[in-house]
Design a protein around this nucleic acid. Structure first.
Lengths: 121, 121
DNA sequence: GTTACCACTAACCTTTTGTTTACTACTAAC
DNA sequence: GTTAGTAGTAAACAAAAGGTTAGTGGTAAC
C-alpha cells in the first residue's frame, strides 16, 4: 500500500492550524449555508430562514451575530419604516470566501454523484 | 447598501444542498485535520493523535471509522508483526479533497493575518 | 375579528460531541 | 522491575450545539 506525501510535517502543522482558524469562523452546521444564501441575494431574516431548510430562528439569530462579529456581514436596520425591516448584507470581505464555497460545493456535488452511481450499479 | 447577487435562487438551493452533502462527510471539528495529517504522511494511530493536537483517542477512533466508511481511507492491519501495527492510508478518492483543503487553509491563513493586522494598528 | 407577517428572544429540553480515567495484552528499552 | 510504546475500548461524565414552544407588538390582508 503506497501513497505520495503531499506536505512535509511542518507544512502539515501549518495547514492544520490554518484550517483550524478557518473553522473557528465557518465551522458548524449552518454558517456556510447562511453565507451562500446571502451571496444569492437573500437579505431578510425570514427569507433566510425559509431558504435554509431546517434552521430554527434561535440558531439563525445566533449565527448571524457571530458572522457579523467576524466581519462577514452587516446588520442594517431600517427603523424609518413600519414594520421595521432588518437587512443582512454580506461584506466585501465575505467575498473572499467564494473559493471556499465553490470548492466545497463542487466536491459535495461530485460526492453525491459518486454515491448515486455506486447504488445504481 | 448595495451588493451583487452571486447566484440565482435555484443555484442557491443547489449550492446549499451540495455543501450539505460535503459537510455530511467532512463536517465537525476533526475530519479535515485528520485528512491533512494523512496527506502529510502520517499513517499510525498514535502518530495521528500526536500531530492533531487536542484530539482524544476515543474521538480519533470514531472519526477514523467514519472516514473509512466514506471511502476516504483504508485501515491496513499488519498482523504478522509484533506488536501488531495498524496503518491508515488515504485513498485515491481522498485526493479529490485537495482543492477543498487548499481553499480552506488559504482562507484561514489570510484571515489570521487580517486579524493580526487589525490588532497591531 | 382572526390570521399571518415582521424580527426576533427566553426558557427549557434533547442530541451531539468531547473529556477523563482506567484498562487490555504484549514488547522493548533502561 | 519500571517505564514507555503499540492500538485501541468501556464507562461515566461534562460541555457545546441545536431544537421546541411560546411570546413580544405593531400592521395588513381576508
Amino acid at each position: 500500500m503506497k501513497q505520495k506525501v503531499m506536505y512535509s510535517e511542518v507544512q502539515c502543522t501549518k495547514h492544520i492550524n490554518s484550517v483550524e482558524d478557518a473553522l473557528y469562523v465557518l465551522g458548524g452546521k449552518w454558517k456556510l449555508r447562511i453565507i451562500i444564501a446571502l451571496f444569492s441575494g437573500q437579505t431578510r431574516f425570514n427569507e433566510l430562514q425559509r431558504t435554509i431548510k431546517g434552521i430554527s430562528a434561535r440558531v439563525l439569530s445566533n449565527e448571524l451575530k457571530q458572522l457579523e462579529l467576524n466581519g462577514l456581514l452587516t446588520r442594517v436596520v431600517h427603523a424609518e419604516q413600519t414594520p421595521i425591516v432588518v437587512e443582512y448584507i454580506y461584506t466585501e470581505y465575505a467575498t473572499t470566501l467564494k473559493d471556499v464555497v465553490t470548492a466545497l460545493a463542487d466536491w459535495g456535488e461530485k460526492h453525491k454523484k459518486k454515491l448515486q452511481l455506486s447504488y445504481n450499479v
